[in-house]
Design a protein around this nucleic acid. Structure first.
Lengths: 342, 342
DNA sequence: AGCGCCTATGCAATCGATTACATTTACGCT
DNA sequence: AGCGTAAATGTAATCGATTGCATAGGCGCT
């Protein structure tokens, strides 16, 4: 009966090099306790037999898996792309691999990933979901053993380390931009509502309006779900009223695209009739027509920083900062212009 | 010295239920060899102690990791999004988790993932890269032990099981569509060149042109790299000639967006002056302006089928089909129209 | 009663590494 | 010579599950 792939094991190396497995292990992990000649002999043997340590055995013994979980609310959201890249790059650089998690906004799915963490499937987790399974914080036994870093979202009931942007301030600036262009009737379509990110962006909108002394009729304050579809539908609804807005602030770019589509269909021109601002600056926002004015956030860096934070915690570095806020930047493009008829 | 998280082990359950670890293991894995009463007692104990088996130990003993590698050439390509979803869903359903791999077109990176496979990090791999490290096919000892499924791409030197579309036929149909609209001067911008997918799409273009008796001047047969940027640049180059094309067939949507952008900048209208066809039907192609005529492929299904194929192989099902071709569909939208001036 | 067989369970090996502790060897110093 | 010490290596426990083989008990059949 042969082994799956007939791989050489540490014992084989030991036999060939005429030493014990302990010495082999030490030699290959660069321990200083091995004589240079022996080490060379062992290296040779390992090379000849094409030896690679079995990760399952090592993981068991070392009580770690060298992988981390990356849990997002929806893998299909293009917004995550650069984040994946940042996370993956930082993880790779540290010898970790990344397990993909997708909750689709389902708390039960989220719980599964917490379970995986407990089971030793991963050593740590980066959470990009606002939802924590009810009780799981304690069940994991504090965030030390298997650290969790939250990114993008913020979980208010917890003090988990996190990486985020100032959604409120960014939204404020975006709306202020419209106000500076002379707009007064500015509507907002938010993300799904009892959620952190959506609320903060909406707060920024409301604050900017309030500070400028502008009214926000209920009809201007709508709730979407970050999808193209709600962007379209709510925009249509908005423009069926008598008191049409002259500008729109959407909580993400995808809804902004939907809205612009709908406006075109309704016969309005962007930005001549209506100005539109999005949020996120996803990869097509600049190539879109008209190029979208939007809030750009350093996505790849968010991913990288979150991973670096997790790595620091995994390395037992408790001194790592527990909260990082990264800067955003309003990209003014062609989808916004002065208020019409002035 | 306490264990990381003070987790209950199988021994604890055994002690509490007054049986041996063997019986616990059997009871929890639904072996038929355990008396119903005992099983119940064990289940209770496990529940009380909140027992979850340690995956590292199980993996070591069972010689498998219950995870698979998904290796793509560039995580940042939005094209992969639905594929991720399909893969992840199928994997989850079978109890597997998915490790993300990103080669960035670097053969050395690809090799790292092959190594991971060998080291037991994963039980199988889905490859969405055209590049295989030179020798690695044999080194893995045949594709049986740790199966590999290729998707999207096709590796000609190997007979690895694969899931793909007929790129050539789809491209042919796309170009035929332009020809049917009366276009004769049709240019093509392909993907990076010594690669399977790019070549096949280009072949389809050339065949359609040849079948219609249309000439393909060298200036019309360009090589891009699937990026927005090359779409823009090569389009500009194309329209700096005297003999301008009236239609463009781009090897993917991203380049098509770049081209349309450039055309707008140059003062041309799509589709009145120039018709544009893309390939892939990514999530914004319909929301783009003008909505892009493009080849749509069943991305999520490609992901799902590839994963299902891998699972079948992992399950020792050798009878699984080793090559699946999925249908594509030309979505005719507003970026194509009749040839101008006729 | 005795035998065989089946069911339920336990014992201990196993997976393949790492590492605490023990042991050997060599060398320097008095 | 004898002792101490440091360097190099070996022995065996360990990580936490699964599983082949052994065994105990119960039951039916002759």
């Amino acid at each position: 009966m042969r082994n799956m792939t007939d791989r050489a094991k540490i014992k084989d190396i030991a036999r060939r090099a005429g030493v014990s497995t302990a010495t082999v292990s030490r030699a290959l992990s660069d321990s200083s306790l091995v004589a240079e000649a022996t080490r060379e002999r062992i290296r040779d043997a390992a090379r000849t037999l094409d030896y690679r340590p079995n990760v399952a055995a090592r993981n068991l013994r070392m009580q770690r898996s060298m992988s981390v979980l990356l849990v997002v609310r929806d893998v299909c959201n293009p917004f995550y792309l650069d984040i994946f890249k940042g996370v993956e790059a930082a993880a790779r650089a540290a010898g970790y691999s990344v397990l993909m998690g997708n909750t689709e906004n389902d708390p039960d799915r989220a719980r599964e990933y917490f379970d995986m963490l407990r089971d030793g499937h991963a050593d740590g987790m980066i959470l990009m979901t606002g939802m924590l399974p009810q009780d799981y914080e304690q069940i994991l036994g504090g965030s030390k053993a298997r650290p969790i870093v939250v990114a993008l979202e913020l979980i208010e009931s917890s003090d988990l380390p996190n990486v985020h942007i100032d959604n409120r301030a960014a939204a404020y600036r975006a709306v202020k931009h419209l106000i500076d262009l002379g707009h007064q009737r500015i509507a907002h379509i938010s993300g799904p509502m009892p959620e952190f990110m959506s609320s903060r962006r909406r707060e920024g909108y409301l604050a900017a309006m309030a500070d400028a002394g502008l009214p926000v009729p209920a009809a201007y304050d709508l709730t979407g779900d970050y999808s193209l579809r709600t962007g379209r539908e709510l925009c249509r609804q908005l423009f069926s009223y008598r008191d049409r807005p002259t500008a729109l602030f959407l909580a993400n770019d995808e809804m902004a695209f939907g809205a612009i589509n709908e406006l075109r269909q309704l016969g309005f021109t962007v930005p001549d009739d209506v100005s539109v601002v999005g949020f996120d600056d996803i990869f097509l926002s600049e190539a879109f027509y008209p190029p979208l004015t939007t809030v750009s956030q350093p996505r790849e860096e968010i991913g990288r920083r979150a991973m670096e934070m997790l790595l620091a915690l995994l390395g037992g570095n408790d001194a790592a900062p527990s909260s990082v806020e990264l800067p955003t930047c309003l990209k003014v493009r062609a989808s916004t212009g002065p208020v019409p008829g002035r």
